[in-house]
């Protein structure tokens, strides 16, 4: 089985969010970019575990992004990816990204596409389902466990109102959430090996633009926290009822 793992770059989780150009662009200055945690911790590591068990022959990494993605791609290779491809384009919207990934997966005959459940910057939860829709293959959404037996996958996933175990035959697309695997830190050997692993750069397909960000806003600041004495909990109950009107 050939697995394609999709990784995106995202600001580090502790980044202070600000915007430039009249609130139309995210301010990348002094921002550290990391691999989106779901992609790294769950999608990539689970794919590598399958390879180590001899269940997958190849684990490739794909990113849609400009050259500033190379650092995160190298990291994914250091963790253990075999090879990488970068689609040389600024990701404009989820459909654009999904279309690039789906076309590549079809052309290169990947059996499974692994993604994170969502990016922590745009919180879309979109690319995975779109890739499945374009490829017309089953979509295992929000998976927290995944096992492979030849070409047959068993996965546990979240559905509205509970969890279920499903079975599906490759090819398929899977979006990964917590529980799939444990995060790994690249070791020295991995880092050295990554230096010589190939990163192929390809140009994007033309795709229609379905959405774009017009501008950003920061949330309205809270009025401040009203403090209530620990021995006056009745006052909290009263405020929640009369002032906040939430109980």
């Amino acid at each position: 089985m050939k697995i394609l793992v999709c990784i995106s770059k995202t600001p580090d989780t502790t980044t202070k969010i600000s915007f430039v150009d009249g609130n139309t662009k995210f301010n990348y200055e002094k921002v550290q970019l990391i691999i989106n945690p779901y992609d790294e911790w769950y999608a990539l590591v689970r794919a590598l575990e399958l390879k180590e068990k001899g269940l997958a022959a190849q684990v490739s990494v794909i990113n849609v992004g400009l050259a500033d993605s190379d650092a995160i791609i190298r990291k994914a290779l250091a963790i253990g990816g075999d090879d990488a491809v970068r689609v040389n384009a600024e990701p404009t919207d989820a459909f654009f990204v999904a279309d690039q990934i789906a076309q590549y997966a079809i052309n290169e005959k990947y059996d499974a596409v692994f993604l994170g459940k969502e990016t922590i910057d745009y919180n879309g939860s979109q690319v995975g389902g779109m890739v499945a829709g374009i490829m017309d293959v089953p979509f295992i959404s929000l998976a927290s466990k995944f096992e492979l037996n030849g070409n047959v996958a068993t996965a546990e996933r979240d559905i509205s109102g509970g969890k279920e175990t499903i079975e599906v035959t490759a090819p398929f697309v899977i979006s990964c959430s917590k529980g799939m695997a444990e995060a790994r830190i690249p070791n020295m050997r991995g880092i050295m090996a990554a230096r010589t692993k190939p990163i192929k750069v390809i140009e994007p397909n033309a795709t229609e633009k379905l959405t774009s960000v017009k501008n950003y806003e920061l949330p309205i600041e809270k009025a401040g926290c009203k403090m209530i004495a620990a021995d006056n909990v009745e006052e909290l109950v009263r405020l929640l009822h009369e002032e906040a009107k939430v109980i």
Partner: peptide, 23 residues
């Protein structure tokens, strides 16, 4: 935008070439 909606909406978006705002 619940677990099932997150799974269905992007597939619909790809099928219909319809822009999707999730959440």
């Amino acid at each position: 935008q619940n677990f099932n909606g997150k799974a269905i909406a992007p597939i619909l978006s790809a099928r219909l070439k319809a822009g999707l705002i999730s959440g």
